[in-house]
Design a protein around this nucleic acid. Structure first.
Lengths: 208, 208
DNA sequence: TGTACATCAGTGAACGCGCGTTCACTGATGTAC
DNA sequence: TGTACATCAGTGAACGCGCGTTCACTGATGTAC
């Protein structure tokens, strides 16, 4: 008769400081991996491994994969928007820099660090409330940022309404540019170029 | 000792006509279910059941789930666009009808029959070439349709470029409207209303 | 038209696999005295 | 400051489950003669 001998591996307790670091590492890893492969496209094992842990540890920090996803989404939106805030000149967000950065091939191809909304928009409606909330917070943050960059007078009409529409439109543009890139790279590039111009006009960008 | 007796169930061969019907039923079921739950969100068993078959039959018609997905996507795009073509008056596609239909709460909530692109855009970039091709075909069809509806003169600039951007923007608007609907229904409605107006201006719609 | 038989759409059990989650256990941390 | 002990982040085996896919088998269809 076979007797299986189980040797439990060593696992030291970690300081509170280190634990907080590990928690953050899980959120960052999840945020990057979800943007590359979608929420359903990455497993907890892969996320944990990328954070230098085993999957069991994940459940010491988060109730479930979905709870981690909500935090990862919020983190991704926050860091996207924090980066865009750096594109300001003299305390006023700069529309040209904003559009050049966002509506570009670099933005389209930089999946890991790229726009969370473009990477997840069509999946969010199928996820639960916590995830919808995280998405909405990130969306409104970006709307505020863009609104501050818009020339209030140029095209007549409410700047907030224009910002709401422009952010959703830019998200769609990046998502579609990604979707067609495999089949028609030159079409994808054309869409980005044309959209960049049109968004500039919509935002009241000064002509060169 | 146990001997397991396996009784194979009856399964008659079906006429060519009936087989073609079943194939179409699989495509339709897949198209509706994918739009509601995403490609990764539905299994072959569920699709087959919805088509009144077992999962084994699916593999008599398609090489894999992915092959079926490509056809289902193409079918969905074709039927979306066929429906939009009916929104023409006197052989000229009507911009107002087009926007009223597409940028609306009905369009946002009608997942099963709704826009394939809005339901899948952010997932497509992660799928294979065949799926990217199907998406691209559907996108270009809708671009042609919209382009024909645009007032060529109104806002200056290339109508094709404007149609490319507008379709991607509309797709993004619906996707974002769906994503925020759970957390902030009134914000979702506001986005649709404002975007509807702005797309009208972009398309050179006559003021009332 | 009648008979023999190859075809192949469809069935349903079974496959291996990877998923999210649980849990008994470890052992340094951090606290109580 | 030193000792005793509770805490709890982390480990890794194991869980049940549903997935996509395969395959031996069925039997009406459709064809060859």
């Amino acid at each position: 008769m076979m007797v299986s001998v189980i040797i439990k591996g060593g696992a030291m307790k970690i300081s509170k400081e280190k634990a907080a670091e590990n928690r953050m590492a899980l959120i960052k890893a999840a945020s990057h991996l979800f943007r590359q492969h979608g929420i359903d496209g990455v497993g907890v094992a892969e996320i944990s491994k990328a954070a230098g842990l085993t999957h069991g540890a994940l459940y010491a920090h988060f109730e479930s994969k979905e709870a981690l996803a909500a935090e990862a989404l919020a983190y991704g939106a926050k860091s996207n928007n924090a980066w865009m805030e750096t594109l300001s000149t003299e305390h006023k967000p700069d529309l040209t820099a904003f559009l050049d950065y966002y509506v570009s091939q670099a933005s389209r191809d930089g999946l890991e660090q790229g726009c969370v909304m473009a990477a997840s928009a069509s999946e969010i409606g199928r996820q639960d409330l916590a995830i919808s909330r995280s998405f909405t917070d990130g969306y409104l943050d970006m709307v505020s940022l863009l609104e501050a960059a818009l020339d209030k007078g140029k095209p007549k009409g409410d700047a907030h309404a224009r910002a709401l529409t422009m952010v959703a439109s830019m998200v769609g543009t990046i998502a579609v540019a990604r979707a067609v890139a495999k089949a028609r790279p030159e079409l994808s590039a054309q869409l980005l170029t044309e959209a960049r111009k049109i968004f500039g006009e919509l935002g009241g960008e000064k002509k060169k």
